[in-house]
Design a protein around this nucleic acid. Structure first.
Lengths: 251, 251
DNA sequence: CAGTGGTCTAGACCACTTA
DNA sequence: AAGTGGTCTAGACCACTGA
């Protein structure tokens, strides 16, 4: 630990007095980023971590509780604390917000339409914080809901991280993308920002979805981030939102 | 408290063992619902509450921390714990998610178009959990963003709670609706569920907004709840989402 | 200055899991 | 039975607020 504040009169010019538990949390996250513990693995116990960082178990607990609230770790009584993993279930329930009219989660099936590699355009470079010209992967895919084409998606990924990703054009993906990112490319998505708007269907959408050009579509523009804060995916989904909706809860 | 589990061998057939702090939280929420402490008021201190409920201060703290995370109370070091209140700022930042292209929050100005009282239709009764025929208040309003009409909204309220609400047709509202609900009708919104989709503009929207019939609009269908879980507002907003978007964050 | 919430620690017991 | 996280308590000191 950098500084403790008890015991005696201390020099305390440290401009940033962060609580101990916050410092512990940062240190644990640093080790996660460094890959010391991989997704799905067990962390050391609270007492062991308390020894490592030379704080009390209660302080470690508070750090881990916050990390659990952020879905960075999963705590299981009697077992231990695990590094969070992208199960298909978590991917869907956490990152896919489309429901049918009764509020039931819909399970999508995907088919890749096109695959493309090339230098990033200026706009793409900005969105993924790359230098212009750095190589990127581009995909277009269709997702079916209840067996009907419902979503056209464009996905942009930086090639330096996703070189190992092999999405076969024309075939169904065997898993959720974020699960594949983690398993094949060691990239874990921990946060996403979405911008929703309504747009008119273009030629691509009218070709792939059972709608006419100009029909209203729900556009979800998402930037997804990994643990170190780097934006690693930009995707734009255009959704035929008749009989469906995007669900959000405000608490 | 109902039951403690320390000290000795105890009869413990209670089928639901809720942690003490959760029971304390429920009891505090019950008192909030009963109106024992009003929005903006100071709660008793942690030690005082610990006496009241006969638990330790740490247990009260955990209950209050959870309530603070849910925006039910606001904690201020050195002052105390306040019952959360709908300030204009909170209303906007928490419940209004429309931004401009740079991510800047937009401040809306409202004008009421129509006002209507009558028995609830079957659909309306379902959404507000009323008996068919119970009286409801209906409003239509236009909201301007950056001086331009951008949102047409239909708002439905049960008359039994909102009889005191007086929205003058044609005039600008002096405050955010949720602030008015709280100040004039003693109704505090604590949660909302939103369903987003894309729709084609109809006659009303084309009349009020600078767009054509059939143009894509972002529809936000919101049900808002008060502390006891009762749905007390149903509103449908249709938003001209050119140069704007609805912002969501997934963590 | 007294009173509040915020942090940190230490220790006890509980419930759950695994061996 | 041993080890884990979950709960509860008690007490210390800190930082902030307002009289």
């Amino acid at each position: 630990m950098t500084e403790r504040h008890g015991t005696a009169v201390e020099a305390r010019e440290a401009p940033d007095f962060r609580p101990l538990y916050a410092q512990v949390k940062d240190l644990i996250i640093k080790r996660l980023i460094a890959g010391e513990w991989k997704p799905g693995e067990l962390l050391p116990s609270e007492f062991r971590l308390a020894e490592i960082f030379n704080v009390s178990q209660g302080t470690v607990r508070k750090a881990l509780d916050e990390m659990a609230a952020q879905n960075l770790v999963v705590r299981r009584q009697g077992r231990g604390t695990y590094v969070a993993e992208h199960s298909p279930h978590r991917s869907l329930f956490h990152f896919f917000h489309i429901c049918d009219e009764n509020g039931e989660r819909l399970l999508p099936i995907s088919r890749v339409l096109t695959r493309d590699v090339g230098p990033a355009t200026p706009e793409e470079a900005i969105r993924l914080q790359l230098s212009t010209g750095q190589e990127v992967l581009r995909f277009e895919r269709v997702r079916l809901l209840s067996g009907v084409p419902a979503i056209v998606e464009k996905i942009l990924l930086p090639l330096d991280l996703f070189g190992a990703l092999d999405l076969p054009v024309g075939e169904d993906l065997g898993a959720e993308l974020y699960v594949l990112y983690q398993q094949k490319c060691d990239v874990t998505i921990v946060k996403a920002e979405e911008r929703l708007s309504a747009v008119a269907a273009g030629a691509l959408e009218a070709e792939q979805l059972p709608i006419a050009v100009g029909a209203p579509l729900l556009e979800v523009d998402r930037t997804a981030y990994q643990l170190d804060g780097r934006p690693v995916e930009w995707r734009i989904a255009r959704i035929d939102s008749r009989n469906r909706y995007y669900r959000a809860t405000i608490v």
